[in-house]
């Protein structure tokens, strides 16, 4: 079912464009492309967090179903597609694997202390900073990159990572701090 009017028919579209197309037009072809990109990575993510293969595939489907349902809330001026999918997958696996709620702020909450100023349209900035971030990740010293991955791909706070890997807590903290500093510089484009 090739649909020449579908935005997904244009192979130059970014993941962000595809996600917007799913949100606006319920574009199935775009969703299929997103599935092809994210589902195999989500499977790896969930398996690293301890899901066995069959369970991981079921959970991947659940995550992608949420991507479909929530796509219209995606705002490319706020986050890359990968970042947005990551937060959905993280919350889903906390719910499914740990049977816990994920406490999060409500951006529309009248009780939220507001930003000093309204954020500008950061769409181009988001795109450029994602590129810089990917490059900075590749440049991280291996010991920093390894700890960073543990912080995202193991269901543990940094203090437990320290204990279970026999790395002194001070070392874990200093390596993670160095990594965060470098990545933050890349995101904010300051050298």
């Amino acid at each position: 079912m090739q649909d020449q009017n579908s935005p997904a028919a244009d192979s130059d579209l970014s993941l962000e464009d595809l996600l917007v197309a799913v949100g606006r037009e319920r574009d199935r072809q775009a969703f299929g492309v997103l599935f092809g990109h994210f589902a195999p990575r989500l499977k790896t993510y969930l398996r690293r967090l301890g899901c066995e293969s069959g369970g991981a595939e079921e959970l991947v489907q659940e995550v992608m179903l949420l991507v479909w349902r929530r796509a219209e809330t995606y705002d490319p001026a706020q986050a890359s597609a990968g970042t947005w999918v990551f937060t959905i997958a993280r919350n889903k696996r906390i719910d499914a694997l740990r049977r816990e709620q994920r406490p999060e702020i409500d951006p529309d909450d009248p009780a939220l202390v507001p930003e000093p100023q309204q954020p500008a349209d950061r769409r181009i900035e988001v795109k450029e900073s994602s590129g810089r971030l990917r490059a900075a990740l590749k440049d991280l010293p291996p010991e920093q990159a390894a700890l960073l991955r543990m912080a995202y791909f193991e269901d543990k706070p940094h203090s437990l990572i320290s204990i279970e890997n026999g790395i002194p807590l001070g070392t874990v903290k200093s390596r993670l701090r160095l990594a965060v500093e470098r990545l933050r510089k890349a995101l904010r484009d300051v050298e």
């Binding site: 989500l42 986050a79 890359s80 970042t83 947005w84 999918v85 937060t87 997958a89 971030l133 995202y152």
Partner: peptide
């Protein structure tokens, strides 16, 4: 979270 997204990718 953007770092998480980049690591996922």
């Amino acid at each position: 979270e953007a770092v998480g997204g980049a690591l996922l990718d």
